[in-house]
């Protein structure tokens, strides 16, 4: 984590994400188009939108898994392909791939060296990095446990740690709170909150804005086939949210923060 500290100043000049007139299609189907937005670094950004609106697709573009049809995209002012090693990614279906064949330790080791040729998962460097991060995130007790024997929340912590172990400058989480109970949700949120002070830009795809609304700095919302951005204060707008979720929504402010709910 200390490593990121040095680059903090340099980061201030950059945008975490920049879209210029971006369009993306899968097959012949245009998923979203004509989208222009910029996200400042070291912020937490939610990505919201209806099912099938193209949230995962946006992440795939950021990760250079699929190309833009037209327009431009920059991650920290660079083409996505160059930034791969700077991005930590937790896919939407992580839980499905969690099997009994590896332990938490191995998942982290793969996060660290899974893209590098070679056979060792336990040399001194790998072990040091893993134990250091595990201490930091308090997941030591999960290192020797099989992924199949973890709860949803524990697994999600491993998934996030696996994405963080390379000290990425960008962290991308696809639905990290899906299928979690309140306690696990809070644990993951605490983890994310904790990262906020570590010079890392975080993108969280979520279908439910409430758990993250006091955490985020803004949100990219996918609406009517375009990606838009709003800072969080403008986002707490009943008209917009009602339109976005196609149902009447009200924003309630309490002393513990804001939340949104269906209007009766």
């Amino acid at each position: 984590m200390a490593k990121n500290f040095k680059s903090a100043n340099a980061l201030e000049l950059k945008n975490a994400l920049e879209l210029k007139n971006a369009c993306v299609a899968k097959g012949k189907k245009t998923i979203w188009s004509n989208s222009t937005l910029t996200i400042k670094p070291n912020e937490i950004t939610a990505i919201i939108g209806m099912n099938g609106s193209g949230k995962t697709t946006l992440l795939e573009v950021m990760l250079d898994i699929i190309p833009l049809n037209s327009g431009e995209i920059y991650i920290l002012d660079q083409k996505p392909k160059k930034m791969r090693s700077q991005i930590g990614y937790v896919p939407q279906k992580y839980q499905l791939s969690a099997s009994n064949v590896i332990r938490g330790y191995d998942a982290l080791a793969l996060g660290l060296v899974g893209n590098k040729l070679g056979i060792s998962l336990s040399n001194k460097y790998i072990r040091n990095q893993i134990y250091q991060l595990a201490d930091h995130l308090q997941i030591n007790h999960l290192l020797n446990r099989r992924l199949s024997e973890m709860s949803g929340g524990q697994l999600q912590k491993i998934a996030v740690s696996q994405a963080l172990i390379n000290n990425p400058k960008i962290l991308i989480l696809d639905e990290p709170l899906a299928n979690l109970d309140i306690q696990s949700t809070n644990e993951i949120l605490t983890l994310i909150q904790h990262l906020k002070n570590h010079h890392i830009s975080i993108f969280i795809v979520t279908h439910d804005l409430n758990p993250v609304i006091d955490l985020i700095d803004g949100a990219i919302y996918l609406l009517d086939g375009h990606a838009h951005y709003l800072p969080v204060k403008n986002l707490k707008n009943e008209k917009l949210l009602s339109y976005l979720y196609s149902t009447k929504i009200e924003v309630v402010h309490t002393k513990d923060g804001a939340f949104i709910r269906n209007k009766k």
């Binding site: 392909k81 992580y94 791939s97 099997s99 064949v101 793969l110 899974g114 893209n115 056979i119």
Partner: peptide, 17 residues
């Protein structure tokens, strides 16, 4: 190592290039 990652989690492997 790359084969293990590809086998266990294709999405992450893709993201890592």
């Amino acid at each position: 190592r790359p084969l293990l990652l590809c086998s266990l989690n294709e999405d992450i492997a893709n993201a890592r290039g």
